[in-house]
Simulated assay, not measured.
Amino acid sequence: MSAIGEVLSILCLAFALGMDAFSVGLGIGMQEIRLKRIFLIGLIVGLFHIFMPFIGLFLGAFLSKQMEGIAIIASGLLLCAIGFQMIFHTFIKKESQILAPVGVGLLIFAFTVSLDSFSIGISLGLSGVATAFAIMMFGLFSTLLTWFALLIGRRTHHLLGAYSEFLGGTILFGFGLLVLF
């Protein structure tokens, strides 16, 4: 019975961690994104949700609570900046964005939404749970939830037209404020 409880706890934790990616993915999905790009974004976010807790397991002993707080603040500021850039982009029609979910922008996005899994990785090593299973579930749930959010955002983009990027930017900015406060 204890094993079932542990598996359920891990699945709930994986879902909770994936909800960050889902929330931010809704905003990103409101940009014009092709299905191939959605697939790649989901995979990269999932991989980051595997690697970050894995790194957290090994580096956890070396980091203090202060460093974790700085990382969370940086994550919130970055989300606000991306959201502001999307809102600004709505009013100033340019061909390129400051940070799009491609290349370095995609890596920054994936890193930002997976920062919380880093701190979870630190605590996984101390708790003695099935670490490999937990980390794989983090990646799976984050990938699936990111795909789902991006597809919802993509559909909403077509329904809202020009205002979808404004709405997406507002969601990202609000989520950044939520992380900060």
Rank of each mutant, 00 (worst) to 15 (best):
V45D: 02
G42D: 07
F54P: 09
I70C: 00
I38P: 02
S75A: 15
I38D: 06
E68A: 15
I70T: 11
R37W: 09
A61K: 15
F54G: 14
L77M: 13
I41N: 01
L47H: 03
A61D: 11
Q66S: 14
G29I: 09
I72V: 15
L79M: 11
L59Q: 09
I55F: 04
I44W: 07
L43K: 05
E68K: 13
E68S: 08
I41P: 06
L47D: 01
I50R: 02
E32I: 05
K65A: 12
A71L: 12
F58E: 09
L77V: 01
M67T: 15
L35D: 07
I72L: 11
F48T: 06
G42W: 03
L59T: 15
G29D: 03
K36G: 09
I28H: 05
L77I: 07
F39A: 10
E68M: 14
L79A: 10
L63S: 01
K36A: 14
I55K: 09
V45R: 00
I70K: 00
I70F: 05
A61T: 15
L57D: 12
L63D: 05
M67K: 15
I41F: 01
L78R: 10
I44C: 06
M30G: 14
A71G: 00
F62Y: 15
L63W: 01
V45Q: 05
Q31Y: 13
Q66R: 14
L40W: 10
L35S: 05
K36V: 13
H49L: 09
F51R: 00
H49I: 06
M30C: 12
I28K: 08
Q31C: 14
G56N: 01
M67I: 15
R37N: 13
G46T: 01
I33V: 14
H49P: 01
H49S: 06
G42Q: 02
M67P: 03
L35V: 09
K65S: 14
I55V: 11
I44A: 03
G29P: 02
L57V: 06
F58M: 11
G60C: 09
K65L: 12
G42A: 06
F48D: 00
I70P: 01
A71D: 07
P53H: 02
G60T: 07
